[in-house]
Simulated scan of single mutants.
Amino acid sequence: MAEQTAPPQSTGDPTARGSGTEKPDSAVVRDALGVGIAVGLSGFAFGVTSAGSGLGLLQTCALSLFVFTGASQFALVGALAAGGNPYTAAAGAFFLGIRNAFYGLRLSQLLALPRFLRPLAAQWVIDETTAVTLPQPTRRAARIGFTVTGLTLYVLWNLTTLVGALGAKALGDTDAWGLDAAGPAVFLALLAPMLKSTTERVTAGLAILLALGLLPLLPAGAPVLVSALAAPLVLFLKGRGGTTTDDTTTEGTNPGEGR
């Protein structure tokens, strides 16, 4: 009689997604470093853009050290460079950064960090760390991905911000280099693969259309605020039209898929 194979033992990890295999730590670190280094280098573009918008060296570096959310930082300095009202610019950056609070709600459950570490980890809850952390199959892998991405990105972003701000004068006209588009381009590149359902794609497309369409009509910094209305509008229309099969999850589907 052939020897029976014992059933696989459960790891006991409450975050396991049912894939049956654990991702090697080296693979998680490699993915996290790839994202951290690639995005961290774009801090140079922010430093140059910020200095070109009229902010001083200390102001520019303080934004990266304490705000540390690239899209909001670019939105703020972009609005200021366009001559927008500082309060409108700050409001646009604030509302754009609110998304990180929703990321934190999910990551707090997934990472389950000790209470004394949570305030420190909150500083690293951004698009990139969320994108690396959520797909991980286990809590251990999620913690490694979050930590390596956050540390790499934070250090590189702040170093390259400093270099960019110091080198802004040497580059001359920053508009001619198009560096102000680097941050939004990186943000969109990270976001695009995460748009799986029709609802998500329609929401993103409508937000872009609102922002671009209102750009010549509203003060600098205001279009990004109005574009946030795309989400409730799409949800309202979806509710009136009924749930589509594209957004439903069939029974037995791995919950880690389709993120």
Rank of each mutant, 00 (worst) to 15 (best):
W177C: 07
V77M: 10
V155N: 07
D246R: 07
W124P: 00
L166C: 09
Y154D: 03
Q59V: 00
G47N: 10
T244F: 07
G221D: 05
L96Y: 01
T129R: 02
V28C: 05
L229E: 02
L76G: 01
L171F: 15
A204E: 04
R259M: 12
L113Q: 07
A204G: 08
A185M: 13
T15V: 09
F74T: 00
Q136F: 01
A141T: 00
M1L: 13
V125F: 05
A220K: 08
D127Q: 03
A2L: 11
F94S: 07
L217A: 14
L162Y: 15
L117H: 06
P14T: 09
A75T: 12
G78Y: 02
E3C: 01
G150E: 05
L206S: 05
N158S: 11
L41A: 14
Y87H: 09
A182L: 10
T149I: 05
L80N: 03
V39N: 14
V148T: 04
G167Y: 04
S197M: 01
G145Q: 01
G84L: 02
I98P: 03
F46E: 02
W157I: 05
R201Y: 00
K23A: 07
Y154P: 02
G167I: 04
A228T: 13
E128N: 07
R99E: 04
T21C: 00
L214W: 10
F236A: 15
L156A: 10
G83D: 08
F44R: 12
D247R: 04
N254K: 03
L117P: 03
F44L: 15
G47R: 10
P135V: 09
S108K: 11
A211W: 04
T161S: 15
T245H: 06
L212Q: 09
T250A: 13
V148W: 00
A16C: 04
A230E: 08
L156Q: 10
V234S: 04
A231G: 01
P216H: 04
L212E: 07
R106H: 09
V35D: 05
T88G: 10
Q9S: 12
L134H: 05
G104E: 04
Y154F: 15
G54C: 06
T249I: 14
R30P: 00
V234C: 11
L225V: 12
L120R: 05
R140K: 12
G205N: 11
Q136K: 12
A75D: 00
T88W: 13
P114Y: 07
A91G: 15
T198Y: 06
P86C: 04
L134Y: 08
M194A: 14
G43L: 09
T199E: 10
L212T: 12
Q109H: 13
V48R: 11
L76F: 01
P24L: 02
L80G: 03
A142W: 01
A141C: 00
N158G: 11
A170K: 07
G92L: 02
L153F: 14
G52M: 05
L217F: 15
A38H: 04
D246Q: 03
T152L: 06
L229V: 11
L76M: 04
R118E: 14
A220T: 11
G241L: 13
A176G: 07
V67S: 01
P7F: 02
D180L: 02
M194P: 00
G258H: 11
T60S: 14
G172H: 11
G183E: 02
F95S: 03
L225Q: 08
G239A: 06
A51T: 15
T203G: 06
F44D: 12
F94N: 02
R143L: 05
F68R: 04
V77G: 08
E22I: 10
R17W: 02
